[in-house]
Design a protein around this nucleic acid. Sequence first.
DNA 1: GTCATTTGTTCGCCATAATGAACGGTTGTA
DNA 2: TACAACCGTTCATTATGGCGAACAAATGAC
Lengths: 182, 182
Amino acid sequence: MTPNDLIANAIQRERLRKGLSLSALAANANLAKSTLSQLESGKGNPSIETLWAIAAALEVTFSTLFEVSKPDVSLVRANEGDTVGSDHATYQTTLLANCPPGTRRDIYRVDLEPGTPRRSTPHPNGTYEHAILCTGVARVGPLEAEETLSPGDYYRYPADRPHVYEALEPGTRMIVIMETKD
Amino acid sequence: MTPNDLIANAIQRERLRKGLSLSALAANANLAKSTLSQLESGKGNPSIETLWAIAAALEVTFSTLFEVSKPDVSLVRANEGDTVGSDHATYQTTLLANCPPGTRRDIYRVDLEPGTPRRSTPHPNGTYEHAILCTGVARVGPLEAEETLSPGDYYRYPADRPHVYEALEPGTRMIVIMETKD
DNA sequence: GTCATTTGTTCGCCATAATGAACGGTTGTA
DNA sequence: TACAACCGTTCATTATGGCGAACAAATGAC
């Protein structure tokens, strides 16, 4: 893939996405439309000033012009299914939770040992926690709905009420993502 | 930041990183050293053919020349990190990454087996991935900055460029949180 | 139908990016 | 010291990217 083709495709892709005509884009970017015409047809070797003007007029970042067109697989997968990208037998991904807009998700690694259960005070209203157990066994969750998690298990629960973490085996480790409203 | 300065810095940064002299780079790229001299001093408006030759000679990807600095990665080993709320000896929590406003974080559980490395195509611009290894050993990250992760290790890297997941042990499992701009 | 407008392309001219030689400065070696 | 080999910069020449005018084709208004 030569840079000419790369940019030719990128310019046209972004231009059509914005519904701009070649002439209109030329006007916005203060470029001759002949220049754009040549670039989109792959005949050309533009300078970065020219590209910069194009990127600005297209309202995209500079490096966008050098990216291959995105099939947008991730977003489609997220809304649709559980298991994705299992074309390789050696590879399997499971979507555990997609992120609602207007939320924050802070990521914690939690190491705990058997002993006194850790009781967490309620977090702000609307808070959720996502726990994925890595190693060991743990009992996790709000008071009326604790669950015993084994490695790989995923559990999401409201964290705006009292909840516990209790290791049932030594060397228990889990990932906890705390989700709060913005 | 004008593109001239951006590229001027990038070329010199990558050139010095490889320990190349300006003259040597010019020879490798089939360019006049006067051209490189002008570019590195910010006086210039190079064509993409010129930049392409430079990127090839520097053995970096094309878009590397437009990046402000190195890939914005963060690595927290299993025994590292800022520990919070460790009042109990049996309990330890590590904040791996707090969530910037206006972002989405989707959570995946990834199971993979040794074999062909899984190469991921770039996600939309500004995407980051957070990987926490649960069991096994994996090599993860963007092409220029892969890291070998052991259980408990946390690695954050830009995912808007090609990156890989490769299991180095059977039964490798990790959590991947994909972070995208809203 | 006619005319006006807009589309993207092609061509000659001009500004300029890339060139190569010459330059001064620095390092290393006999 | 003298000399060679390298460094990066500067400058006149040359190749070429960007420009505007002219162009044919498609579209819309009346």
